[in-house]
Simulated assay, not measured.
Amino acid sequence: MPFCCGGFLAILEYFKIYFWCLSMELLPFSVLLSVYFKESALYLDAAFESIWDNQSLKPDQIVLVKDGKLSSELDATISMWSEKLGPVLTVVELKENVGLATALNAGLDYCDYELVARMDTDDISLSERFYKQVSFMTHNRDVSVCGAIVEEWDERCLVRLSIRNLPSCHEGIMKFAKRRCPVSHPVVIFRKEAVISSGGYPVVYPEDYPLWIMMLSRGYKFYNVPEVLLRMRAGDEMLCRRGWGFFLGETKVFYLMWKLGFTGSFDFFCNVLTRGVVRLSPRFIKVLLYKFAR
């Protein structure tokens, strides 16, 4: 169960909005993805199935950024989906691998609609994801970023490992953001102009956390749908990625938070210390922390 100021009342309000939106004309939206050469063609195909074949509300546009040269298997999968989707799919080709932040900023320029849903090319969106998030954003024009609860699964999506619960309401998100990333990037939907006016994705890893901090500092309103709307492939590969380099990136984020006045000096040192323990621990300790401390 997600936690939030307001608790049950916040969830009740969400469902009231959801059923009210059944009779509304929903806003059009784009889906933004980026793929690079190390990714799996099978996972990419499954991701496309989840955002098109299996969705109750299909996107008006899908923007896929090819971040540098890809494998022949990935190119074949993209060609197959280009033929299937026709003008719905916009493929943006970058000559060199530039990293996720720069690739997403390039892709944003090609998104035709104000609402943009993020999706990673190895995750699975549940069938009602877009309907529920777009319904919420259509009704709540004051909200700029909307996330949801994510289930973390093993790499083959056979075993559920954990659930990442997050606060729903803006006040809870503001408080949570002082310690941890307050929305799950692969399941977020946002207003394009709000992201661009905040400077877009900063070229740092992780790229999403500092963007949310910049937006929260500028007064943009956030919300997390209190339901599971995405399955994320986690497992050993994700744990390996979140080591020394990830820790250095997070330290830069914590410094940004302190510099903006979002947190104080005590928060900064606590954040760096706790993150250092998590990111620099042996793998078996990381596994336990991710399992029991999410």
Score class of each variant (00 low, 15 high):
L26C: 02
R283G: 04
W52G: 01
S71P: 04
L94Q: 00
P226K: 03
W212M: 08
E114Q: 12
G276D: 12
H185K: 06
W81G: 04
D45G: 10
R283M: 05
D123S: 03
R118F: 13
T102L: 11
I51W: 02
E151G: 04
C21G: 15
Y18K: 14
V145F: 08
F262K: 07
F268V: 07
L280N: 09
N105D: 05
M80E: 12
R118N: 14
L273K: 08
K95C: 10
F269E: 07
I62F: 00
Q61N: 01
V225Q: 02
E73M: 04
L64F: 00
V92Q: 07
A117R: 02
E151D: 07
C4N: 15
L239T: 11
H170P: 04
F246W: 15
R275M: 11
I149P: 05
L33M: 15
I189Q: 07
L248M: 12
C21M: 09
K58R: 15
L32Y: 15
L12C: 13
L9T: 13
L211D: 07
I285N: 06
S127V: 05
Y209N: 06
S217Q: 12
D120W: 10
A41C: 05
M80W: 05
V287Y: 08
L33R: 14
I196W: 06
D236W: 10
G68P: 00
R118A: 10
F268Q: 00
L289H: 07
N140F: 09
